[in-house]
């Protein structure tokens, strides 16, 4: 009576060569082939993509908000990883 058994898929699209696949939304489908086809029909009606990934939503393992401190904060104390950390003479500042 429903589409309860249809699975939720997340859709990622590469807009053109050289770009990353980008998450665009989700849809319902019975299997991954059907999900690919529906992704084509739903998310590329204006020729927005040259490559599509679909992933079963339940297969996505997401970090939790509560993990944030241990997960990301240790990465945030290394300003020397960013180009702007280095003040260089005006002449070479486009480096």
């Amino acid at each position: 009576m429903s589409q309860s058994n249809m699975k939720l898929y997340e859709v990622f699209i590469r807009g053109r060569r050289g770009l990353d696949h980008k998450h665009v939304g989700s849809l319902h489908a019975e299997d991954s082939e059907q999900a690919l086809e529906y992704a084509r029909d739903v998310y590329t009606r204006r020729g927005e993509g040259i490559s599509i990934w679909v992933v079963n939503s339940s297969d996505i393992c997401a970090s939790q908000e509560s993990d944030c401190e241990s997960f990301y904060d240790p990465l945030d104390d290394k300003p020397y990883r960013h180009a702007t950390h280095y003040q260089l003479p005006e002449k070479v500042n486009n480096m």
Partner: peptide
């Protein structure tokens, strides 16, 4: 026809957004 199809697409995008809040399309 393309326009009405877009409305279906927009409905679908929005159902997707609602589903992230823990409610099913059904």
């Amino acid at each position: 026809l393309a326009k009405v199809q877009d409305e279906a697409g927009h409905g679908l995008y929005l159902y997707s957004a609602a589903e992230t809040l823990g409610i099913s399309r059904e």
